[in-house]
């Protein structure tokens, strides 16, 4: 499998406000009861979007103005909690291709990187301005440029931060870590053979 090179993501924005949005909120555990990820997109933010008997609640993911959006904008510590990859899978399968926020939980952003969904950091005031912009002009195009490390919207261009390893992998299309790491079979063997607990502690 050769993953694509992702140098930039362009599309419409969608805003989910609030700090510490955990992965149980992104996808409640009862929707993990499936052996494939195929339907996860339907469950994104399920309990925040639907009440008892499927009653539709007010939520950006239900809002007709934001359907088809591909760039999610969030606040601090997004994706904290459970390591469930179902969370980024749900967002990706709903249509999200990049997430811009103040900060992300470690496991969550690692999982996003594995799926080719970049997590991009902006300072709080920049996130707030971007959120306000998207809510004011829902259809407007946002661009996340991974090569230049900038987020562009309207006539604004803001410098962003992104984990350098993630950026490099996405831009060069080397984010299939399984294939990449299998290239080093001999080195893997060498490392394993030097670990005492794999050699019955005989040095």
């Amino acid at each position: 499998m050769t993953p694509q090179q992702i140098a930039a993501v362009k599309g419409r924005g969608i805003v989910v406000r609030g700090n510490d949005v955990d992965t149980d909120r992104i996808i409640p555990a009862r929707y993990l009861r499936e052996i494939t990820f195929a339907r996860m997109g339907e469950y994104a933010f399920y309990d925040e979007r639907f009440g008892a008997q499927g009653k539709v609640k007010t939520h950006p993911f239900n809002d007709p103005r934001f359907q088809g959006a591909s760039i999610l904008v969030v606040n601090e510590n997004f994706g904290c909690g459970s390591s469930r990859e179902h969370a980024p899978q749900a967002l990706m399968r709903w249509g999200i291709q990049a997430i811009v926020g103040e900060s992300f939980a470690d496991i969550f952003s690692g999982n996003c990187g594995m799926l080719g969904v970049p997590t991009i950091y902006l300072a709080k005031p920049d996130v707030e301005r971007l959120m306000d912009f998207i809510e004011a002009i829902p259809g407007a195009e946002i661009e996340v440029d991974l090569e230049k490390k900038v987020v562009k919207y309207g006539d604004v261009e803001i410098q962003a931060r992104i984990n350098e390893s993630m950026r490099e992998s996405l831009v060069k299309g080397t984010w299939d870590t399984t294939s990449l790491m299998l290239e080093a079979k001999d080195e893997i063997r060498k490392t394993a053979s030097a670990l005492p607990y794999l050699t019955n502690f005989v040095s």
Binding site: E168, K172, E187, T191
Partner: peptide, 13 residues
């Protein structure tokens, strides 16, 4: 002790 190598993107395998 468990580092196999440095990956091109700077991460550790």
């Amino acid at each position: 002790a468990h580092a196999v190598r440095e990956l091109p993107n700077g991460q550790t395998q």
